[in-house]
């Protein structure tokens, strides 16, 4: 089993961010992704950075763990920075190597965009770090509730997501088992021509699909036998509730957004 893979990277805890209603977290992140594009000065970036770092520290998850989770993104951040310092030709020439000139405008632009990207990734990753997948599913179901009026299958979507979350560990074990079984029979997934590797994938997927759909059949029969009738009249084990803490976070975030817009005006 590949232990490097952690579903949702969720880290259990009882921090302020952990205790927030998942709908609050999703809403704040949605608007953060939106307002981050309005940052255009050192002051506005400072406000966003302070908010992001404060949120990160409040989770009480080790900073090293969070930054380690962002490892694959560093390449993209460095790439972005490098691209902009060589492409943007504004301001004064800072360095000239052969015919390659680095302008002050390019450095500022590269830094600003890389910083914006880093903050976006950092804040959005806090959602999955502090919220269980099932809480995210419950929040999505609740937030999509108004769509029921246009006959969107909100409950059904949430149920499919829950079933999916339930079966991920089972099917991951199954995939691991089958790929090891095929490897022991001499199937090589890692070398050979494109054709060979594509061919090697088929014997892995056939038993996987058969096994998965067999499980689906058994679950469907069990649900039918128990008289499952859909979402109407069903109650929930976990009720989502907006608390004073959530309202305080909304007010704080509104203040951050207002501060950001003020820096654009003055």
């Amino acid at each position: 089993m590949n232990n490097a893979f952690i579903i949702g990277q969720y880290v259990p805890g009882n921090s302020l961010v952990h205790r927030l209603d998942p709908r609050t977290k999703i809403t704040v992140i949605f608007f953060f992704v939106f307002i981050v594009f309005f940052a255009n000065s050192l002051a506005s970036y400072s406000i966003l950075t302070a908010f992001s770092l404060a949120s990160m520290l409040t989770t009480r998850i080790p900073v090293r763990y969070i930054l380690k989770g962002l490892t694959p993104v560093w390449f993209l951040i460095i790439f972005t920075f490098t691209l902009h310092i060589f492409v943007t030709k504004q301001g004064t020439v800072l360095v000239e190597i052969f015919n390659l000139k680095i302008y002050s405008g390019g450095v500022i632009q590269g830094f600003a965009i890389s910083m914006r990207f880093f903050l976006l990734i950092l804040v959005t990753s806090l959602l999955t770090l502090t919220t269980t997948p099932i809480e995210i599913t419950d929040a999505i179901e609740d937030m999509l509730h108004p769509l029921k009026k246009i006959k969107f299958p909100v409950h059904e979507l949430a149920l499919m997501m829950s079933i999916s979350l339930r079966f991920i560990p089972t099917l991951m074990q199954e995939t691991d088992k089958i790929s090891k079984a095929q490897a022991s029979r001499g199937v090589d997934f890692k070398t050979g021509s494109i054709k060979d590797r594509v061919k090697a994938v088929v014997p892995l997927l056939v038993p996987l699909f058969v096994s998965a759909f067999k499980r689906a059949e058994e679950l469907a029969m069990a649900m039918e036998a128990r008289g499952y009738r859909g979402g109407e009249g069903r109650t929930k084990l976990r009720e989502l509730k907006i608390m004073k803490l959530d309202i305080a976070i909304f007010i704080l975030f509104a203040a951050v957004a207002a501060g950001l817009f003020l820096t654009r005006v003055y």
Partner: peptide
Amino acid sequence: INIRTLVTNGVLAALYIAATALVAPI
């Protein structure tokens, strides 16, 4: 959406994630 479609799609989504996570990318 009938029960079989619901369950099959739930399991298919899980299969998608399992395949993404565990099968080494070519």
